[in-house]
């Protein structure tokens, strides 16, 4: 369960988030809003990439700022551009990266890598240079790099923005199949249409908090 207790974030002159107070317990949570509305800041609070100016965030009773390592283990983060998330030049090396940081035994690392590659039809690319993968494969590799860590929560920050329709659909299906709690930031409204709950951000506040059907139609009116 995720708790936000009166959280505000202040950048130099700008208030990025204003007094957010809520509990997230649903399995699929969508986050929408215009650029600069505070939605990225909101998700970055979930694993300590961003520190709250006041108030606090709790992930299963852990504070991402104080228990950074523990929280990051349980909160996986997938960014918009997979090129910025893939750190190693070879597919299997990149997947091993997070696992080595967890100090897992070699057998376990290999088992998890083979399993995840098979899951996303990437087994043939195990020893391939990561930059030669297609855009969709790169995003699946980025997601895989997070999944091998076996997190409880997965945050996706605009995971389909850079993808063509076919790859977007592959990523959508990949997300749908996840057992974990998923929090997705997206401009792609179809992606979150089947979720349990949608939050709409504007000027650092949550202005709509509803089931997707209602939230999306209100958001469309707002933006019209």
């Amino acid at each position: 369960m995720i708790r936000f207790e009166n959280v505000s974030v202040q950048f130099d002159a700008r208030r990025a988030l204003e007094d957010i107070d809520l509990t997230l317990s649903q399995k699929r949570i969508g986050i929408i809003g215009a650029n600069g509305s505070g939605k990225s800041t909101f998700v970055r609070l979930l694993n300590g990439l961003q520190t709250a100016t006041s108030g606090r965030v709790l992930i299963d009773d852990l504070d991402p700022v104080k228990d950074g390592r523990k929280v990051r283990r349980h909160v996986g983060f997938v960014f918009q551009n997979p090129d910025n998330q893939i750190v190693y030049p070879v597919v299997e090396e990149d997947l091993a990266f997070g696992l080595k940081a967890l100090k897992l035994p070699k057998d376990e690392i290999n088992r998890r890598i083979d399993e995840i590659l098979a899951r996303y039809d990437l087994s043939d690319f195990k020893t391939h240079p990561s930059h030669l993968l297609s855009g969709g494969q790169k995003q699946l590799l980025a997601i895989s790099g997070v999944l091998v860590m076996e997190p409880r929560y997965i945050v996706l920050d605009e995971p389909t923005t850079l993808l063509d329709l076919r790859n977007r659909n592959r990523v959508e299906h990949a997300i749908a199949d996840l057992d974990q709690t998923v929090i997705t930031v997206s401009h792609d409204l179809d992606l979150i249409a089947g979720y349990d709950r949608v939050l709409v951000f504007e000027n650092g506040r949550i202005v709509i908090d509803d089931i997707p059907a209602n939230a999306i139609s209100k958001y469309r009116e707002m933006m019209a």
């Binding site: 990051r72 960014f79 940081a101 860590m149």
Partner: peptide
């Protein structure tokens, strides 16, 4: 950010 999110420190 991505490296830190993948629990490297």
């Amino acid at each position: 950010d991505a490296i830190e999110a993948r629990s490297f420190d």
